[in-house]
Design a protein around this nucleic acid. Sequence first.
DNA 1: ATTGATTATGTAACTGGTTACGCAATATAA
DNA 2: TTATATTGCGTAACCAGTTACATAATCAAT
Lengths: 317, 317
Amino acid sequence: MNFFDKVGTVAIGSRLRMLTEKITEDASHIYELYNIDMQPKWFPVFYVISQGEEKTVTEIAKEIGHSHPSVSKIISEMVAKGLVTEKKDKADGRRNMISLSKKGKEITVRIKDQYTDIESAIGGITKQATHDLWKAIEEWEFILEQQSLLNRVKDQLKIRESKKVQIVDYQPQYSAAYKALNEEWISKYFKMEEADYKALDNPEEYILNNGGYIYVALYNKQPIGVCALIRRDDPEYEYELAKMAVSPIAQGKSVGLLLAQAVIDKARAIGAAKLYLESNTSLKPAINLYHKLGFNKVAGRATPYERANIQMELLLS
Amino acid sequence: MNFFDKVGTVAIGSRLRMLTEKITEDASHIYELYNIDMQPKWFPVFYVISQGEEKTVTEIAKEIGHSHPSVSKIISEMVAKGLVTEKKDKADGRRNMISLSKKGKEITVRIKDQYTDIESAIGGITKQATHDLWKAIEEWEFILEQQSLLNRVKDQLKIRESKKVQIVDYQPQYSAAYKALNEEWISKYFKMEEADYKALDNPEEYILNNGGYIYVALYNKQPIGVCALIRRDDPEYEYELAKMAVSPIAQGKSVGLLLAQAVIDKARAIGAAKLYLESNTSLKPAINLYHKLGFNKVAGRATPYERANIQMELLLS
DNA sequence: ATTGATTATGTAACTGGTTACGCAATATAA
DNA sequence: TTATATTGCGTAACCAGTTACATAATCAAT
């Protein structure tokens, strides 16, 4: 079974499961060995209620990290074996108080030797090993808690996909896409305004011939996103990032980021001191992106757009 | 859930299972992410049949380390999804030849990106971690293959139990146990002979007053094993290890080993050059013990016992 | 006092594996 | 040749967990 050597870490789940199975299989024989009438799966439950006070089902579940139905089943099995007693809480009729029976308490004494023997056996293994499995598991749990494997893979996918995205200068052939991509999101979340039609129908006149720029993101040669750097008639904010639109089918490719970066780079190259933009707070991903790029909220400026309820600036120098 | 911190490595099985679950749960979402209509559990099967030639169910099972019913189920699910085709082997009507369908082959192409993204994601985790989980698993698999956890725990139990065993000199109060313990095994496997009665009924006369010794193993103050060092009338083998008997209820405590060592130590202390013994090859554990202690088979000597079919010696100097 | 939300728990059905078993095809040996 | 053993594989039942759902008790807010 050199399967794992061939497939590598992709199959880490399968491999973990096999090791788990091997260990838990032995576990049940170990209980036999010590003549303790207990199943390995009971152990976590048994352990927490052997720690003193009686506990409810959900408390136990939370403590050992199982679901409550799992604990519920285990408890009823242990009750059947007489290891544990149930008692309704008088103060709260929902709660089922679980505690060790006399027989259960007897086992806590006898089981101690078993614990120490298992600890020594595992200690022997870790001494033989150069890699500490226990600590490695701990570490993985911690790392995966910070960011799940799924999200890490998503990131990788995004990185790979974004490499296939190409940012190019606007050309007349993209005029339809430029309008369509913007119209798509505007009419989805808001509605088209007078200023939109002006800017979208006449990009040359309103943007390019006025000292502005438009960038187009291509994926498989198809335009999937656009963004403009607009020259404004405003002494404080001479340049504006605007008309950012990314096709929803192109999500997860960092298209917005790439477009915004192209605009920012251009603004810096032509000597803009700062960059201005308008947006709407309901567009969470966009606001997040702007924030990540360093844009900060600024006070209310005059705007021709009804939907604009937030304004941001990025200092470039 | 600081449960694991409290219980320590005893719960390594539970902890492994949880990590496994967390990872495999993400796995299914990862397939979704790449729009690949495949379940994570299919992956090992999918992988081996994507390697080229068609394979039988059992071949696949062996290769990936699953049971054959598991593979059988997975195959039928994959057939239902059209990823795989079955074909009876003409030469051998039992064999069910499995190979990828056209649709399955298409997936092999699309899945490559997924593999590399997962590899990078896991690579990122291992880079963050100081302990290498992958290598730790590998190592544990290897170590457990050499000796299972169960056997390691058994060893620990034996060590602990053997510490409770005390080897003492024979005293008249043990005469009944001395006889009973020997009679027990002799009459279980063979039958009592003339020489047995002599030696067992009159230990003082036949052994102790003749320059020999008897040791008794006590467990909870009860005699559970005996062994004698007998002085012989033989120029070549002056001393004999004999009358070794251990109660079957005292197994797993190394009683035999402790008794034999007491006898060997004594023989060495009184200046014996070598030690002789007789036994029967059907008594496997005894023969193993003698062998482990350094006894070697020697050629046939005269013996009063019918059951003796092997003779061994241990050089002491 | 009533109504709606939350909490504690049990039951049912599912999941991804296992072992046990049985049947048919093939191999082996008398 | 014929009886017997072995092999390949599917089905059934089990196992240790899960999620989904139902129900009853309690809490919270009007």
